[in-house]
């Protein structure tokens, strides 16, 4: 099982992701520079957090045109699992691989704190080992995490069960008090129609060991390993892409 961690100029959670999947999870991991188009035979692609291109123009707006993104799109189109974390999520939004956009946090502050998420759906490769309603405690670190989508798009996301994580209280109750950034419907993470592309603002890769204050994020990476292990055919398809 091999994870590709894409590195953009300004990525700063690339090493966290690499460490989590290689040293904690025990899988293979490889960095892929954003100007490369070869995903190094990856089974899973991670777009990590950070500040690609200095967040200039809009978060993720320039990174989406990196050469590697055409390969990531082809990998995803063939069913390969892709996860965008924080800036990686913003890049997926700008690339149109996930719907919606990010606005500045409603309080305007850059938020760096632990939050609670409720897992809404377990039918994605990245939540397969979760239980519905499970509460994960993960860190956030972003200035533009205020999820927005036009009303019709938001309604479709909800109707199709594509909201995967919501900001919640420690008890899993979704309320405005648990919403750090003003995201519509407390949305912290969503998936595409095919459910193999997931984006979320919180950082599971920074919460894979108790020494880091939480190991709740590990289930996200364990899930995709388990999910792929049960889908040998999917891996072959994804590889050919």
């Amino acid at each position: 099982m091999r994870f590709a961690v894409v590195v953009f100029p300004g990525s700063n959670c690339d090493h966290d992701a690499y460490h989590a999947v290689k040293h904690v999870l025990g899988a293979e991991a490889a960095f892929v520079w954003h100007k490369d188009t070869d995903l190094a035979g990856a089974d899973v692609v991670i777009l990590p957090g950070g500040f690609s291109h200095g967040d200039y123009l809009r978060t993720g707006a320039i990174a989406r045109f990196s050469p590697v993104m055409a390969s990531v799109a082809a990998f995803a189109a063939a069913g390969g699992p892709v996860i965008g974390i924080c800036n990686g999520f913003q890049i997926l939004l700008e690339a149109g691989m996930l719907p919606g956009a990010m606005l500045r946090n409603r309080g305007l502050k850059f938020l760096c704190e632990h939050v609670h998420l409720r897992v809404e759906r377990t039918d994605t490769p990245f939540t397969a080992l979760c239980s519905e309603g499970q509460v994960l405690r993960l860190p956030i670190a972003h200035g533009d995490g205020n999820y927005y989508a036009a009303p019709a798009v938001l309604a479709a996301l909800e109707a199709e069960g594509r909201v995967i994580f919501r900001y919640a209280g420690p008890d899993g109750r979704v309320s405005d008090a648990g919403n750090p950034n003003g995201s519509l419907n407390n949305i912290a993470g969503i998936c595409n129609e095919a459910r193999n592309v997931v984006g979320l603002m919180p950082h599971p890769e920074r919460a894979c060991e108790a020494a880091l204050g939480s190991a709740d994020g590990l289930v996200v990476f364990r899930s995709v390993v388990a999910s792929l292990a049960g889908k040998g055919a999917l891996r072959a398809v994804a590889r050919e892409a």
């Binding site: 606005l103 409603r106 205020n146 036009a150």
Partner: peptide, 13 residues
């Protein structure tokens, strides 16, 4: 500019 239907936290501030 942000579309009229989109909240602008910076403009509000």
């Amino acid at each position: 500019t942000l579309k009229p239907s989109v909240f602008d936290p910076q403009g509000r501030t």
